Amino acid sequence: MPLAVAVGTPPVVVPPTSPPIDPRPIYNPGTIRATWTDPDGIIYELTGPHDLHGWLTTQEIAGWGATPISHVTDPLARGGVEMRTVRIEPRRITWPLNIFGETNVQWRDRYRRLMRAFTKTTTRRRPGTLTVWYADGQARSIEAWYEDGFGGEGGQNWLFANPVLTLFCPDGYWRDVVQTKVRRDYAAATGKPFLAPYLSVSSSRLLGDTTITNPGDVEGWPLWTIVGPASSVVATNRTTGQSFTLTHELDEGEVVTIDTTSSRPSVRGPEGQNLVGALDWPASELWPLVEGVNDVTFQMVGAAPGAYIELVYHPRYESV
């Protein structure tokens, strides 16, 4: 027999009075603090205070240990393989969240805000930054892109949700949140530093025994700032045997920046012009600071008071 259907009367949905209790333990705010900085520079706390933000990080974080690697090999006729190189791979971090609210409206607002913070990496075409602090003050960060997790799970998405995010990190290494800065100023004829505690850079001789210690687990790639007056600059890492020479006339206060922090290094002049051709190719090597002690020397030709060389870098580490 036909069923009677009431036309025009929507079904009544009674929401639960409170979200189910998540039995998984959470990180004690005194143990770690984690934040997400979206591509627009807005910072979101991920670990508390929970009542203020309406979300928290649960215990199943994964993928923040040793940097992933793969072995590149060549097969041998006699059997087995020969190791060609070890390749550093990108990393994927799993970051589980619990988002909650006292009403559906409150929950939706929190969920949408946090989801947008991560999915902006897609629309902005820029990564965000995941940062983790420990109770002793140590902090490390890693650039990441949202990959998955906000798809929605059955039985959730009314007053609570437990998205488990997958964050794709092109550089598998973590980095120190504090930059290390090294600056060397030109000194007049005495060759002594006029701006303590910086060492001098002489226009007539090389400075030996200048030591830079990289505390990271792997090499650190610097951003160089060269300020004139100068006609050429030679920077040598004697520990690795690498050096580069930049030949370009700089007036007083004019700046050249050499950025080696990305896979596509750049050299920019005072007007933003491309000065890659001012390096002495093919001899030039834009060198990194290797793990541990680096003995470096700098030389500025045509320098005068006011000229200096500065490099900044983030030490990089295997794990958080």
Rank of each mutant, 00 (worst) to 15 (best):
W145C: 00
S202C: 01
K192F: 11
N162G: 04
V178D: 13
F168C: 00
Y198R: 13
W174F: 14
L199N: 02
L167Y: 10
Q156H: 02
E147F: 06
T213L: 13
C169V: 13
G155T: 05
E147K: 15
A188T: 14
T211L: 15
P163G: 09
G149F: 03
W145V: 06
T180R: 09
G152E: 08
L195E: 05
V182I: 02
G155W: 01
S203V: 02
K181M: 15
F150I: 12
G216F: 11
E147V: 05
A187S: 14
D176W: 03
G151H: 07
N214K: 00
P170T: 14
P193C: 06
S203H: 00
A161K: 04
G216W: 13
V178K: 06
A161R: 03
A187G: 14
S202Y: 04
L206K: 03
G191D: 06
V178E: 08
A196M: 04
G152S: 13
V178Y: 04
T166N: 14
Q179N: 06
L207T: 05
R175T: 03
A188W: 09
P215I: 09
D185G: 02
K192S: 15
S200R: 03
R205Q: 10
P163E: 11
F150Q: 12
L206Y: 08
Q156E: 15
P197H: 10
V178W: 02
N162E: 14
G149Q: 11
G155N: 05
Y186T: 03
N157Y: 12
G154I: 05
Y186E: 12
S204E: 08
N157R: 10
Q179D: 11
R183Q: 12
L165P: 01
F194K: 02
W158L: 08
P170Q: 14
G152R: 08
Y186F: 12
L165Y: 15
R205H: 03
V201F: 05
Y173C: 07
N157K: 04
K181S: 12
S202P: 02
N157H: 10
G151R: 03
L165M: 11
V182K: 02
T213M: 05
D209R: 14
S204N: 12
P170N: 12
P170H: 07
P215G: 05
F160S: 05
D185L: 00
R175H: 08
T210W: 13
R183K: 12
V178H: 07
R175K: 08
P163K: 06
D185I: 04
R205G: 02
Y146A: 04
Y173D: 01
F150G: 08
Y186L: 01
N214S: 09
Y146E: 04
L207N: 10
L195W: 10
A189F: 13
F160E: 06
A188S: 14
G154K: 06
G155L: 09
V182Y: 07
S202M: 03
T211C: 01
V182E: 08
V182M: 01
R205A: 08
S202H: 02
A189G: 11
C169W: 11
A196K: 04
L207W: 01
V178P: 00
P197R: 15
P197I: 11
Y198N: 15
T190M: 03
